[in-house]
């Protein structure tokens, strides 16, 4: 293993992470809801009553508005794609189905679940991180 010192950004990573934790923590403390993106979005397909739908739409609207407001103050950070459209569609399907079966993704299990000290979330995080490491190993070092 070699550390990539050119792309390593510990301070913005820590600060961005702190903002993410603050947002998830505030949502939980103030309203008891979990800032898990897959659960928030996936819940929109479950035919829930309007009261349980509107806050989800509002949270997603906040996420969508973030880059637009950001651009009023500063240019967006670099976003460099690593896969073509067909691969992105397969990945999207895996992410959509997988996160719903697992009841959470990087935000719900990773941030909120680990902050709650949930063993179930720890198992989820180890599973998706492990699968992510193996998948990228195959893409970059076996197939490439």
């Amino acid at each position: 293993m070699q550390i990539d010192l050119i792309n390593f950004t510990p301070w913005s990573a820590l600060a961005g992470g702190a903002l993410i934790g603050l947002a998830g923590g505030l949502l939980a403390l103030l309203s008891g809801r979990i800032a898990g993106i897959s659960g928030i979005v996936g819940g929109l397909f479950d035919g829930r009553p309007a009261a349980d739908r509107n806050w989800r739409i509002a949270f997603v609207a906040g996420l969508l508005a973030a880059p637009l407001l950001w651009q009023l103050v500063a240019p967006l950070p670099a976003i460099q794609q690593v896969a073509g459209i067909p691969a992105m569609m397969i990945a999207g399907l895996l992410v959509g189905l997988g996160t719903r079966y697992a009841n959470g993704c990087t935000s719900g299990h990773g941030v909120c679940g680990l902050s709650r000290l949930s063993l179930r979330s720890l198992v989820a995080v180890l599973s998706f991180m492990g699968a992510g490491f193996v998948t990228v190993f195959i893409i970059r070092h076996v197939l490439a």
Binding site: A91, A102, S127, G132, T135
Partner: peptide, 23 residues
């Protein structure tokens, strides 16, 4: 929980984005 997370992790590895960042 485990199979769902593994499928999610594979998709995350291919695309390099998860649900929040995608939105």
């Amino acid at each position: 929980l485990i199979l769902g997370s593994v499928a999610f992790g594979a998709g995350w590895g291919i695309a390099g984005i998860c649900p929040g960042p995608a939105l």
